[in-house]
Design a protein around this nucleic acid. Structure first.
Lengths: 74, 74
DNA sequence: CTGTGACTGGGAGTCCGTG
DNA sequence: GCACGGACTCCCAGTCACA
């Protein structure tokens, strides 16, 4: 039971942080995707915790949102 | 000219943080690898900035070192 | 505007070795 | 103990059609 807890955790922390910070900016997922140089559907996946991104992707997201990478993961 | 600067940046920040924190613990790369549940050669690659890990790996590293994931990336 | 399944190429992560 | 290489498997990056 509860096999992959820790792994799910950090993805869901990222998911929550992304959605909140994006909404604070008043951006659609599509607008956010353009700012970060990523695809619209990829942002959707990230905000649902459905992907396990690399740190270079986290860096792009953080830069687009104007926060540190750590702010997205902690 | 300066094509992938940002991507290199975060990997090298991670590399530096990993090596410093590991040495503070007095661990070998192999001992660290065991603590984090990763392979010995992979730790070597990470500390040389030669790899682009996923956030689940960053989480494992952070837990092994007793710090937040953000502490490794910021 | 967003969620989701499916797809492909390339890279993440492991394991063997060497000096 | 560490850097580095080759080879392998599997999953991530990036995109599309459709609901």
């Amino acid at each position: 039971m509860t096999v992959h807890v820790a792994a799910m955790d950090i993805r869901e922390r990222l998911a929550r942080n992304l959605r909140l910070l994006r909404q604070e900016k008043g951006w659609s997922q599509e607008a956010f995707a353009d700012e970060a140089g990523l695809h619209r559907t990829y942002i959707s996946d990230l905000e649902r915790g459905a992907r396990n991104p690399t740190i270079t992707v986290v860096d792009k997201l953080a830069i687009a949102l104007g926060v540190t990478p750590g702010r997205l993961l902690d």
